[in-house]
C-alpha cells in the first residue's frame, strides 16, 4: 500500500527513511519525493503486512503519515477512452480493458500528474493530500 510521509523542516535533514528501514527491516520503495522549504513529502510503497510497524516508527520520529486513497480521479463524462494518458504514466497505472475502455490500477499511482497534463479532455484530477 502507498502512504504519504510528511516531515516538517526540523526533521527533514534526518535520514528518517533509512532509520525506519533499519529499525523495521521493511522493504520500502520510494515512489516520489518533494523537499520544499515547508518540509518534505514522500510517497512510499509499504508492504501491507508490516504497515503498522512502519507507521509507528515514522510517527515516533515526529513525521506524520497518511494513506493514499483514491489518488487519481477520472471524470467519466469527460473521458472519451482515447488512452492518451497511458504512455506518459511512469508506473503503468492505466491500461485498456478488452473493450478498449480505459482502466486504472490506482494502487500503482504516485500522483505525479503526468496523465493530468496529457489528457486532452481535462478528465483527470490528482488529489493532493
Amino acid at each position: 500500500m502507498k502512504i504519504t510521509l510528511h516531515a516538517t523542516p526540523d526533521i527533514t535533514p534526518r535520514p528518517l527513511i533509512a532509520e525506519v528501514i533499519l529499525e523495521t527491516r521493511a522493504l520500502l520503495n520510494i515512489d516520489r519525493a518533494d523537499v520544499k522549504p515547508k518540509g518534505g513529502e514522500v510517497v512510499i510503497d509499504v508492504p501491507p503486512d508490516i504497515y503498522d510497524q512502519v507507521a509507528v516508527a515514522f510517527e515516533k520520529r515526529g513525521a506524520t503519515i497518511t494513506a493514499l486513497e483514491q489518488p487519481l480521479i477520472k471524470d467519466d463524462d469527460e473521458c472519451v477512452n482515447c488512452g492518451a494518458c497511458i504512455s506518459v504514466c511512469p508506473t503503468g497505472v492505466i491500461s485498456f480493458r478488452e473493450d478498449w475502455s480505459v482502466q486504472m490500477d490506482l494502487d500503482k499511482c504516485v500522483q505525479c500528474g503526468a496523465c493530468v497534463t496529457m489528457c486532452p479532455h481535462g478528465a483527470l484530477t490528482v488529489l493532493k493530500s
Binding site: 472519451v80 477512452n81 482515447c82 492518451a84 497511458i86 504512455s87 491500461s95 478498449w100 475502455s101 480505459v102
Partner: peptide, 23 residues
C-alpha cells in the same frame, strides 16, 4: 499492442484517438 520497438527498446504507445468510441 501497446508497445513498439525503437532502436532496441520497447516503448509504450498510446492512441490520441478513441478506438472505443470509433467502435
Amino acid at each position: 499492442s501497446g508497445m513498439i520497438d525503437i532502436n532496441g527498446r520497447e516503448i509504450t504507445t498510446s492512441p490520441m484517438s478513441s478506438f472505443h468510441d470509433a467502435r
